[in-house]
């Protein structure tokens, strides 16, 4: 056997194993791809064949965007105020979470105070806690402070539960900024707050973007708290609306459901397309001595 033949055999071997890997990955991701294809085909056609092939294209399923919809005897709310509610919810969660985690992350990264280690450890435990387990207790609390059936109430709950993770994430970014840069800012005449927002924050923009994206997505897809704590239809969010569409199985309109589901996903997809780069830069910093 010549050297060349050996090389060819090795090449054949590696490309063969590569094909096998790709095949496996394709098979594994098929169910997900299939699900999205169904959603898309279903939303633009009267009927689908073989699960994913659209037949007789129509915009009828998207009628919820411009007209009132009724399924059976139930009349559904206009989608636009509900969309606005969802934007408001996700937006407020993002704003609060970013602001608080930026302050808390800075303190945990840069300052020494008693109980710092304890806080760092317990925040992680808090995040591991299943939110559903708190549902009833949270209901009592919100009811007591008059925040039940208010979007603000859901915002507060969601921010409180998401904050530990966001703070840890942003702390890692602060840890990466050398002390000398912060010191230089003080020598140049900055107060601590000025150094924070004029010199340090501009350098952790990717981190801020990442936290903001996670917070927005978490707020946008938030379901269980909205469903439990909001009962007036004017406070509904898209996730609750979608759940209500499925509500009555006798009159289920799959085309409508697919279109509404796709509508719900649009901001998420857009967000991912815009923010891919920032998401890739996320890493979690350890505790520096």
């Amino acid at each position: 056997m010549t050297v060349r033949e050996v090389m060819q055999m090795i090449n054949a071997k590696t490309s063969l194993s590569r094909i096998a890997i790709y095949l496996l990955l394709i098979i594994l991701s098929l169910p997900i791809v299939f699900g999205y294809l169904w959603l898309f085909s279903g939303s633009i056609s009267e009927e689908v064949e073989f699960g994913i092939v659209p037949k007789s294209i129509t915009l009828k399923n998207w009628r919820f965007l411009w007209s009132e919809i009724t399924i059976g005897t139930k009349v559904f709310e206009n989608i636009w105020p509900i969309t606005l509610n969802s934007i408001l919810l996700a937006g407020s969660i993002t704003l609060l979470e970013v602001l608080i985690s930026l302050l808390a992350g800075y303190a945990l990264s840069r300052m020494n105070f008693p109980g710092k280690d304890f806080i760092l450890k317990t925040t992680i435990i808090l995040h591991a806690f299943p939110g559903v387990a708190l549902l009833i207790a949270l209901y009592y609390v919100l009811n007591y402070i008059g925040m039940i059936d208010k979007i603000t109430g859901v915002v507060l709950v969601k921010v409180a539960l998401e904050l530990p993770m966001a703070t840890w994430m942003i702390k890692g970014f602060f840890d990466e900024i050398p002390w000398e840069i912060e010191w230089a800012a003080y020598m140049d005449g900055c107060s601590r707050l000025q150094a924070w927002y004029k010199v340090i924050l501009p350098q952790i923009k990717p981190g801020i973007a990442a936290v903001a994206i996670f917070a927005f997505l978490a707020g946008w897809s938030e379901f269980i708290y909205s469903y439990t704590f909001l009962f007036s239809s004017e406070n509904y969010t898209l996730a609750v609306f979608l759940k209500n569409l499925i509500g009555d199985f006798r009159f289920l309109d799959y085309g409508l459901l697919a279109a509404a589901g796709l509508f719900y996903m649009i901001p998420v997809i857009a967000f991912f397309l815009i923010s891919q780069k920032s998401l890739v830069t996320i890493k979690f910093g350890g505790i520096k001595g």
């Binding site: 000398e180 840069i181 010191w183 800012a185 020598m187 107060s191 501009p202």
Partner: peptide, 19 residues
């Protein structure tokens, strides 16, 4: 406070603001 001492300082890593 450092900001009120009117001191100029040059660090080993220069510590220029990258942004």
């Amino acid at each position: 406070l450092p900001k009120d001492r009117n001191i100029g300082m040059c660090f080993q890593s220069y510590a220029l603001y990258p942004h």
